[in-house]
């Protein structure tokens, strides 16, 4: 399975943020999308998920030779600031989410199993999301893609809000599920990208550029990236 981005353009007013972003993402890999503040990482994600409309270009899914348009349902999107309906308890939200994704569920898992997986204890499950911490809300968002298992998972700066212990858990979790998905992970923290990701893609001046993976752990890699981002 591949995710193909072809010549994606996006403008805000007169400012062109994406200037023909083109890339092929492969299943089984975690991609680190690296870019400076304001480079357009979130914009790219929002375009893919249908949050905002493109000016031109297309995004496609290639599933063993069958190429289809990337549909919103194919995407699990974890926002950098989690957005959840606050009037529900965590439990109710997950129950609701499971019901509307009935046909995608892993039949062996029950709602309690999911909460155990992300380590939210029984008492917290039945509290209103309104009172959840940022990290807990983010965990619930992660559950959404664990439950619905969409082919493409977009994570917008997710680990920055977790404490070290949770961040490690989530990293392990992402590595565990990566074989079935295309995971793209946006960050501006270089170390996080090199640490977790199999590939690094740089978003600079509105286009996507791959950083050769063999260079990832070479000395001098950081300078190289910095030079790339500086132009």
């Amino acid at each position: 399975m591949q995710l193909l981005l072809k010549d994606i353009h996006k403008k805000f007013g007169d400012k062109e943020v994406l200037k023909g972003a083109t890339f092929t993402f492969e299943q089984g890999k975690i991609y680190g999308l690296l870019g400076r503040n304001g480079a357009g990482k979130t914009t790219l994600f929002n375009c893919l998920s249908g949050e905002i409309d493109l000016v031109s270009g297309e995004s496609l899914i290639n599933n063993n030779g069958i190429v289809t348009k990337l549909e919103f349902e194919d995407i699990g999107y974890v926002f950098s600031s989690p957005i959840l309906p606050e009037f529900l308890t965590g439990y109710e939200f997950v129950k609701f989410y499971m019901e509307i994704n009935k046909e995608k569920l892993d039949a062996t898992k029950k709602i309690e199993d999911y909460f155990d997986l992300i380590k939210i204890d029984n008492e917290d499950r039945h509290r209103l999301i309104k009172g959840y911490s940022h990290g807990m809300k983010n965990k619930i968002q992660m559950l959404c893609f664990i439950i619905a298992r969409p082919p493409v998972i977009l994570l917008d700066e997710p680990l920055t809000s977790f404490d070290v212990v949770v961040a490690l858990e989530i990293k392990k979790l992402l590595r565990k599920i990566k074989n079935d998905h295309i995971i793209i992970f946006s960050t501006h923290i270089l170390q996080l990208a090199t640490d977790l990701c199999d590939e690094i893609v740089v978003l600079n001046n509105g286009v996507l550029e791959k950083v050769p993976s063999e260079a990832l752990h070479n000395p001098g890699f950081e300078e190289k990236i910095i030079n790339l981002l500086k132009d």
Binding site: S49, E73, I75, P85, F87, C144
Partner: peptide, 18 residues
């Protein structure tokens, strides 16, 4: 404010039939 602002961020909620 209390419901749609958050759920509309999810693609499934914006589905035509939904």
């Amino acid at each position: 404010y209390n419901c749609d602002i958050s759920l509309l961020r999810y693609a499934f909620y914006r589905n035509k039939s939904i």
